[in-house]
Amino acid sequence: KLCLVCSDEASGCHYGVLTCGSCKVFFKRAVEGQHNYLCAGRNDCIIDKIRRKNCPACRYRKCLQAGMNLEARKTK
């Protein structure tokens, strides 16, 4: 099974979405830290295992598009 954000090996369902541990922690920190990420490109950066750290804005956008939600952990 692959992470729906970066296509690395998924470690489980986190915040409602099948993700790897790295994307799970990234999403939690992004939401709780209330980061205002900005993409230096055109908001279409490739997010994969190798390049997932290059653009936090696009990675966060991809987390949201996949359906990640901090509240999902509280309902399970």
Rank of each mutant, 00 (worst) to 15 (best):
K1L: 04
L2R: 14
C3P: 01
L4G: 10
L4S: 10
L4V: 09
V5H: 01
V5A: 01
V5F: 00
C6P: 00
D8N: 05
E9W: 15
E9V: 14
E9H: 09
E9A: 14
A10H: 04
A10S: 07
S11G: 07
S11V: 12
S11K: 12
G12N: 07
C13F: 12
H14K: 06
H14E: 06
H14D: 11
Y15H: 07
G16F: 01
V17M: 03
L18M: 07
L18T: 10
T19M: 05
T19G: 03
K24D: 12
K24C: 13
V25D: 13
V25W: 09
F26N: 01
F26M: 01
F27L: 03
F27Y: 12
K28M: 12
R29K: 14
R29M: 06
A30S: 07
A30V: 14
A30L: 03
A30C: 08
V31H: 15
V31C: 11
E32P: 03
E32Q: 07
G33P: 04
G33R: 09
H35Y: 07
H35A: 13
Y37T: 07
Y37V: 06
L38C: 10
C39E: 02
C39H: 02
A40Q: 13
G41L: 11
G41Q: 09
R42M: 10
R42E: 13
R42P: 04
R42A: 13
N43W: 08
N43Y: 12
N43L: 06
D44I: 03
D44V: 09
C45Q: 02
I46Q: 15
I47W: 02
I47N: 05
I47S: 04
I47V: 13
K49I: 06
I50F: 04
I50E: 10
R51T: 11
R51E: 14
R52N: 03
R52K: 10
R52T: 06
K53W: 07
K53D: 15
K53E: 15
C55H: 00
P56L: 09
P56Y: 09
P56V: 08
P56A: 12
A57I: 02
C58V: 00
R59N: 01
R59H: 13
Y60E: 03
R61W: 07
K62W: 03
C63Q: 02
C63G: 08
L64V: 14
Q65H: 15
Q65A: 11
A66W: 04
A66K: 14
A66M: 10
M68C: 06
M68D: 01
N69T: 13
N69I: 07
A72F: 04
T75F: 15
K76W: 05
K76L: 12
K76F: 13
